[in-house]
Deep mutational scan, measured.
Amino acid sequence: NITNLCPFDEVFNATRFASVYAWNRKRISNCVADYSVLYNLAPFFTFKCYGVSPTKLNDLCFTNVYADSFVIRGDEVRQIAPGQTGNIADYNYKLPDDFTGCVIAWNSNKLDSKVSGNYNYLYRLFRKSNLKPFERDISTEIYQAGNKPCNGVAGFNCYFPLRSYSFRPTYGVGHQPYRVVVLSFELLHAPATVCGPKKST
């Protein structure tokens, strides 16, 4: 009989979030998941669920729940959905087409922007091929755009693959930082360890 609440607040209220290319994953298990708490945590810009209804979450049980978190800019949030393409979905964080879970995003301009520009958040701009779903690539190998090998040196047709967002508070919403948490629900042929409040007794 599990009584402890799932530590969603640790994920959502973390002081620092990860850069999207090096997104963070927390496995959540053996706890009571009260998803209604999430609705009250922040004024969400996005709370979209796929393959599951957000209002039914509190009635369900899962084997595992994974919470992935990272920062992107406002106009990239739409890429965090099944079947999307674009720089983020292709080279940084890719959801599977049959994704079961929820994408939660909110504006973090007050936390993640600086007047002089916050350069701490990076994204991958160049990659030889698209990522597979939930693949994480943290390599910093020089990207070869031409025929000549780069031998690890940046220059003509040889690019450092990561680029930094420079978040400034005066930017338009599309270029402001957004914190994203992706909850993916895993149903294996194994005992369910993460249940809503109704199912945990």
Rank of each mutant, 00 (worst) to 15 (best):
R179I: 04
F8I: 07
L122E: 15
N118S: 14
Y21K: 04
R163D: 08
E10A: 10
N40R: 14
N120M: 10
A81I: 01
S139N: 10
I28Q: 02
E141L: 07
L5W: 10
K148F: 10
A42P: 14
G51L: 01
F156A: 15
P191D: 14
K132M: 11
S129I: 09
F70E: 03
S200W: 13
Y50C: 01
E141T: 12
T3I: 06
A14N: 08
L122D: 09
N24Q: 14
C61G: 06
H189W: 07
D112S: 02
V65R: 04
C31E: 05
W106L: 04
S200N: 13
V194P: 11
S113E: 06
V32E: 08
C158T: 04
E135R: 01
E10S: 10
F160N: 14
N24G: 07
R16F: 09
S200H: 13
R127F: 03
Y91I: 05
Y165V: 05
F99H: 00
P197C: 15
N58D: 12
V20G: 04
D90W: 04
A105K: 01
C158E: 05
Y159D: 10
L125A: 15
C150L: 04
N24T: 14
T100A: 07
Y178L: 06
G86Y: 03
P43D: 12
W106D: 00
V52I: 14
D59Q: 13
G101K: 00
Y93C: 01
Q144P: 08
Y159Q: 11
I80E: 03
I138Q: 09
L57E: 05
K26W: 04
P133N: 03
C102Y: 00
Q144E: 11
Q79F: 04
T100K: 11
I104C: 06
W23G: 04
A154C: 10
V103H: 00
D34I: 06
K56T: 10
W23D: 04
T100V: 14
P191H: 12
T100C: 13
Y21R: 03
T3Q: 09
K110A: 13
L188R: 14
G74M: 04
T63C: 07
R168I: 10
N13Q: 05
A67P: 00
S108W: 02
R127V: 04
K198R: 14
S36K: 11
K48P: 00
N30P: 07
Y93L: 02
Y66M: 09
D34N: 09
N13R: 04
D68I: 01
S19G: 04
I138E: 13
A67V: 10
N109L: 08
N130Q: 13
I142Q: 06
E10M: 08
H175N: 15
K114A: 14
G155H: 06
L57I: 09
K110H: 14
I28Y: 15
F126K: 12
S113I: 05
V182G: 00
C6Y: 02
F185Q: 01
P191R: 12
V194L: 10
E76F: 01
A14P: 00
Q79T: 03
K48G: 01
Q79M: 03
D97A: 10
K94H: 07
K26F: 06
Y159F: 12
D75Y: 05
V52W: 04
